[in-house]
Design a protein around this nucleic acid. Structure first.
Length: 114
DNA sequence: GGTTTGACCATAA
DNA sequence: CTTATGGCCAAAC
């Protein structure tokens, strides 16, 4: 094990986040706020993003999580943003000319975990 | 311990 | 359209 990288020793919050994200159906998306709400804390959207940024597992469909505008939020990481879009399109999710997803169609409300 | 940061959100200008 | 601001809270430093 390497300890030169941030690693989750004792998954607490992130484990919950990952559990929610894993529940998002194929071809559907959820917002950071939706995931946060499913955790019972609508205001922890930032931490959801933080948790996904720290994600190192490959069994979590992180690409199905977008921001409230239906756009990809990868900040400076362009490679990740491109990958996310590619993965979503592979699931049949369509982006418009502005790079937005029609949330009214694809949005999925995660089942509350509380 | 306090401070900073962040894949957010809503609102205002 | 862009930029700014306040709020939120976990993790990293």
């Amino acid at each position: 094990m390497r300890d030169d990288e941030p690693r989750v020793i004792k998954p607490g919050f992130h484990a919950e986040v990952y559990a929610i994200v894993r529940e998002i159906p194929f071809g559907r998306v959820a917002t950071y706020g939706d995931v946060a709400s499913a955790l019972g804390a609508p205001s922890v959207a930032r931490q959801v993003g933080w948790a996904l940024a720290a994600l190192r597992e490959d069994d979590v469909p992180w690409h199905r999580v977008v921001n409230a505008q239906g756009r990809i939020s990868a900040r400076g990481d362009l490679a990740r943003a491109t990958l996310q879009r590619t993965l979503l399109e592979a699931e049949g999710v369509v982006f418009d000319a502005l790079g937005c997803i029609a949330m009214s169609r694809y949005r999925s409300r995660p089942r509350p975990r509380i």
